[in-house]
Computed example of a mutant assay.
Amino acid sequence: MPDPLCDKAHPTKGAGHYRPRDFDYDAAAGTCICPAGKLLYQNGANCKHNGHLAVKFQGALRDCGPCTLREKCLRKPDTTPARQVSFFRGRAPGGQVSCADLMRRAIDSARGRALYGGRFATVEPVFGNLRYNKGLDRFTLRGQKKVDTQWKLYCLVHNIEKLAHHGVAQ
């Protein structure tokens, strides 16, 4: 017998939960049968998931509820009502558009140029005032709630200053 403390071989995993390969999927007919032999309902034919097309199926509550294979089929059999399974069919046409490309398209339009040109008069002076005039070039507190409180305090001072100089009493 090898020494159990020196044996570095990984123990073999058991069968675990059912994977999509354990389901009988017929792409031509658009059907899926679970390991217990029950027909699953198709609830999506051209679903996009991370740039891939998928066909989604879900089991009926009347079939999955009393099923004897629930423990092996579902990760959380106590809370999950029915099994869902997806079969991927390849990449979606056009691929995934990045956020930078979406922003580039939005800014390059005529309306986008007009909106972006207006930023100088709307948003950026506030940040400039808070950063350079008020000295908020970094937060002095740690933690999301404390930083949020500090940010709101500086914004409050900025708004009170605007009211005092240009606001209600004038």
Score class of each variant (00 low, 15 high):
A114W: 07
K13N: 09
Y154H: 15
D63C: 04
V123I: 14
G112Y: 02
L130R: 05
N46C: 10
D3S: 08
G16H: 02
D7M: 00
N133M: 06
T79N: 10
L5H: 12
D7P: 02
G112L: 00
G128D: 08
K48C: 10
R91L: 15
I107D: 01
R111V: 11
G14P: 01
H158I: 00
S98N: 02
T31L: 01
F87R: 07
N133L: 11
R89H: 06
S109W: 04
G128P: 01
P2V: 11
M1N: 11
P81D: 08
F57N: 02
H49A: 06
D108Q: 12
C155L: 13
N50P: 01
P66L: 03
A164W: 11
S86E: 09
G59F: 02
H52D: 09
C67M: 06
P20R: 05
Q84T: 14
L5D: 10
K76L: 12
Q42V: 07
T79F: 11
Y116M: 14
N43L: 01
R19P: 00
K146G: 00
G128W: 03
K146P: 01
K134W: 08
L141N: 03
A82W: 08
I33G: 01
G90M: 02
C64L: 03
K48D: 11
Q84L: 10
H49F: 11
P4M: 01
S109Y: 03
Y41I: 12
C64Y: 02
V55H: 04
L53Q: 04
V123N: 06
W151F: 15
Q58E: 12
L40P: 03
M103V: 15
D24F: 08
Y25H: 15
C34D: 13
T149C: 11
G37V: 04
L141G: 04
V85F: 05
R142E: 04
L141F: 07
D63T: 04
L156K: 06
Y18T: 01
V97I: 12
V168E: 10
Y116F: 12
D22E: 05
M103H: 12
T68H: 13
Y116Q: 07
K152C: 07
A60M: 05
F127N: 05
P2R: 15
N50F: 14
Q144C: 07
R83M: 08
G65Q: 11
L69Q: 08
A54Y: 13
